[in-house]
Structure formats: C-alpha cells, structure tokens
C-alpha cells in the first residue's frame, strides 16, 4: 500500500493510475518525450520516452506504474534506442535546422541534443512536402511534421474544431487540414487555437515572429531540455506573445 516505485534506482511515490511519465514529472525527473503533453491524453507514438521495465522496453507516457515497479530510464540500450528513433524521425522528414525559425526553441532538436545525437545516421528520405503559407498568421511546413498528433488532439479535444487529421498509412502517413481546398487559410484555424501552440517542432509556426530572439539566446541553446522543460512552459517566450 506504500505506492512507491523505483526510477533509475531512486524510490519515488506514485498515485494509482498514474503513468510512469506522470509520476516522473511529478517528482521532477525528466524522461525525454515528443508526442507527450500532459494537457492531452497520452499517445505513445513517437517512442522517445522508452524506459526499461524488466526485460521489456515500454513507453513511459502510456504505461501505468505498479507497486514496486523498477524502471530504468538511463541504461545504454534505452539511450541507444531513443537515439535511433530520433535518427529515424530526422531521416524521415526535412529537418534543416539552419533554415528553421524554430531552431533553438525546438523540442525535437532539444531532445536530440539531450540524447547526444550527432547525425541522422540513416539515409534521408527527402519527402517532397510543400509549405502551406495560406493562413495570415501561421505557416505549416509539412516536411517538419513528426506525426505526434498534438495539433490533431488539441484542435479536436480542446478547440472543438477538428482542423487537423492524419491521412494515409505507413511512410505515406501525413498531416492533412480540414478545409475545402485542404489549405490552412480556408480552415477554421485561428492563431488563438491551442492547436497553434503545441507543435514540438517547426511544422506549425507563427508568421512575422521568426527571429525575435537571436540564435544562441534561445531556450535550448545553453541548457538541456531536462533543465529547461518543454516548450509548453515557455510558450509566450517562444511564440513572441506578451
């Protein structure tokens, strides 16, 4: 009845029904993640929050803690697999950090830094995905989408709009927009939507705000995401709102 588990050898408390991720976050322990955002239902798709439980590797964001569970988040095989999953994401999309306004404020990049990823390793796919700049306030670069579905979830579960969906399957899976033309500018999307502010990469970006903070002085330029925290905690800074 003590409701404790161990994470990397540290004994931590948990509340019944809590996931490993939630319990770790409550205790201030960082487990890297991309598709997870505590404002929305756990998703489990990116696989970056892998942890070892016994001989199995599970996603911390979807796995409930059980009494006495021993979780390992730091062993080399976990780190290597996280890195490999990140390398797959980088190889799958068009992640050109030097050309991206989000660079330095990007969770994908920050998590890759955190895991010590030096290169995408795999042969890149270079998908041809046009940019949608049809909306007056926001731009979508589909080449940077990692299919975390945070915008899908935020639009559906918070904004009540269902602006976004995932279409296709396999490597052809892609983000689509619900409007007659398929363009963001023709949809119900608004800059005030939660969906506008949850993207962990530079796929959904506000216009006219790109370089308010110079490169080198951005969120993750000096300290790792494990200390700085998610974009969620720094939204106003990053999106340039007061």
């Amino acid at each position: 009845m003590s409701n404790h588990f161990t994470l990397d050898g540290r004994q931590l408390p948990f509340v019944a029904g809590q996931t490993i991720m939630a319990a770790a976050q409550a205790a201030g322990v960082y487990i890297p993640h991309l598709c997870h955002n505590p404002d929305y239902a756990p998703h489990g798709s990116c696989r970056v929050c892998l942890v070892a439980v016994g001989r199995r590797q599970v996603s911390a964001c979807t796995t409930p803690v059980t009494e006495g569970m021993a979780v390992d988040s730091r062993c080399e095989s976990i780190q290597a697999n996280r890195r490999a999953v990140l390398q797959m994401l980088f190889a799958e999309g068009n992640h050109l950090c030097p050309a991206c306004e989000r660079s330095g404020n990007c969770q994908l990049q920050a998590v890759a830094y955190y895991t010590g990823m030096l290169a995408p390793h795999y042969p890149p796919f270079f998908p041809r995905r046009p940019v949608d700049a049809s909306h007056p306030d926001f731009i979508i670069d589909f080449g940077r989408c990692i299919l975390c579905e945070l915008c899908v979830r935020a639009s559906r579960d918070h904004d009540g709009k269902r602006v976004f969906a995932i279409s296709g399957r396999g490597l052809a899976s892609h983000l689509v927009i619900d409007s007659p033309s398929g363009l963001l500018g023709d949809s119900d999307f608004a800059a005030t939507d939660r969906a506008a502010h949850v993207c962990p990469t530079g796929a959904i970006l506000p216009k006219h705000k790109g370089f308010e903070h110079p490169i080198g002085e951005r969120l993750y330029d000096r300290e790792p995401i494990s200390k700085v925290g998610d974009l969620r905690a720094h939204e106003d800074e990053v999106d340039g709102n007061e």
Binding site: N94, C97, P98, A99, R128
Partner: peptide, 18 residues
C-alpha cells in the same frame, strides 16, 4: 569526418530536393 550540417545531413542545399 563529416564537418557541419551539409556534410552531416546535406544541409541547406538539400532544399533543392523538393
């Protein structure tokens, strides 16, 4: 050694791959 973004992942010039 691959030095810099372009050697590492093709970098800015890969924008022409679109």
């Amino acid at each position: 050694v691959a030095v810099g973004a372009c050697a590492v992942n093709g970098g800015i010039p890969t924008m022409r791959n679109q």
